[in-house]
Design a protein around this nucleic acid. Structure first.
Lengths: 196, 196
DNA sequence: TGCATAATTGAACAATGTTAATTACTTTTG
DNA sequence: CAAAAGTAATTAACATTGTTCAATTATGCA
C-alpha cells in the first residue's frame, strides 16, 4: 500500500501548491475552494477527499513559507559577522519578506485562531519565529557583555511586537505611504531599540 | 425639509446602534446585513436606503468607539500627575480597552483598507489616536529634560507599533494565554521603553 | 474482459452581500 | 375628501462563499 500513499501525497501537493501560489499572488481574499481546485486542475469536491476543510490546507502553507522566509533572510545576511548589524539586518529582511508577500503576512498574523485544534502548534511556531531567527545574535550580544540577559529578552520582545504593528500599518493601512519611508522608519526604530 | 433630515438621522442611528451593539458583543464575525437590520427592527433591504454598504456602517462606529476609549482612559488616569507613570497608564488602559472589546480592536486595526475613498481619514485617525492620547505626556517629559524630542518621537512610535503587535498576539492568538500574564508583559515592556 | 473498488464530479444547501422590483405608506394636489 | 405622486420598506432574486453527498467515471485485479 505504498503506492497509495505516494499518490495521495502527490494529490495533496497539487492542492497545497495551488494554495501557495494564490496566497503569494492575490492573497487571502482570492482563496476559495473553487479557486484552489481549479488551479490544481480538479473539481472543488475532490479537495475534500484530501483535506478536512480549506483551513487545514491554508495552514499547511505556513511551514513552507517559514522555510522560504528563513532562506530569504539567510541569503541576505550570511556574509555579516555576528552583532548588532546582523541582528538589525535579520529583522529588516524578515519585514521585507512580508512586504513582498502581504498575503503571507495576513496568513501568519491576521488569520483568526477560531477553532484551535491542531492549529495551536502552528500559532506557536509563528509566535516564536522571529525569536528563533534572532536567538544567536541576542545570545552573542549578551555574551559580549553589551547588555544583560534580561534586557535582551525585553528588547527581543519589544522588537517582535513592534514589527507586527509596523507591518499592519504599512500593509493594511498604507501608513507610511511609500516603501522608502517605511524602510527609513524601520531603520530608525531598530536603531533606537539597539541603542546600547 | 427639516423633518426629513431628523427622521433620516434617526433611522441611521437605529442601524448604527445595532451595529455597535453587535461589534461590542460578538465582534466582526457576527456582523451581517441581515443581523444588523433584524436588531434594528427593519428589513435588511432598508439598510441600503440609508447606507451605501455595510462597510460604511461599520466605519461610522469607529469615531464613537474612539470617544468611548478616550473616556475609558481619562476616567482611570485623571488623578495621576504628568510624567512617566501617567504615560504608562494611558498606554496600559488603551490596551485594556481593546482587550475588553476585541471586536473593536478588529475593527480598528485588522479591517483591510481595500477601497479607500472616505475611509482614508478614518484610518489616519486610528493611526494617530495613541499619539494624540500621549502627546501631552511626551511633551512634558521633553520639557523636563528627561529625553530629547527626537528620542521621544522614536519611543512613541515604538510603543504605538508594539502595542498593536501585543494585542494581535494576545487577542487573536491567545499568546500569552492569560490576562495576568499579558498584563505583566505589558508592564515589563513599557518599563523597558520608558527606562531613561 | 468484467467486476469491484476507489476517485472524481457537480448538483444541492445554507449563508453571505447586494440590487432591483414591488408593496405600503405619506404627502400633496385638484 | 379622494386621487395622484412621491417616498420608504420589503422581499424576491442573484452571485459568491464553504461544505456534503449521491451519482458518475476511472482504476486495478482476477
Amino acid at each position: 500500500m505504498d503506492k497509495k500513499e505516494i499518490q495521495e501525497q502527490r494529490m495533496r501537493m497539487y492542492f497545497i501548491n495551488a494554495t501557495k501560489e494564490l496566497l503569494k499572488g492575490e492573497g487571502l481574499k482570492s482563496i476559495s475552494v473553487r479557486n484552489i481546485a481549479e488551479r490544481a486542475g480538479y473539481s472543488f469536491g475532490t479537495l475534500y477527499n484530501y483535506f478536512d476543510d480549506v483551513k487545514e490546507l491554508i495552514f499547511i502553507c505556513v511551514e513552507d513559507f517559514q522555510d522560504e522566509c528563513r532562506e530569504f533572510i539567510e541569503e541576505r545576511t550570511k556574509t555579516q559577522s555576528q552583532g548588532k548589524d546582523k541582528l538589525r539586518s535579520i529583522v529588516k529582511y524578515y519585514m521585507y519578506y512580508f512586504v513582498q508577500y502581504p498575503g503571507i503576512f495576513e496568513l501568519f498574523f491576521l488569520e483568526r485562531a477560531n477553532d484551535v485544534g491542531n492549529k495551536k502548534p502552528t500559532f506557536e511556531m509563528i509566535y516564536s519565529f522571529l525569536d528563533k531567527l534572532c536567538r544567536d545574535e541576542w545570545k552573542y550580544l549578551v555574551e559580549q557583555g553589551s547588555l544583560s540577559k534580561q534586557q535582551a529578552r525585553l528588547k527581543a520582545e519589544i522588537t517582535k511586537n513592534m514589527v507586527v504593528g509596523m507591518l499592519i500599518f504599512y500593509l493594511n493601512r498604507h501608513n507610511p505611504q511609500s516603501f522608502d519611508e517605511f524602510s527609513q522608519r524601520t531603520e530608525a526604530l531598530l536603531d533606537e531599540i539597539l541603542n546600547f
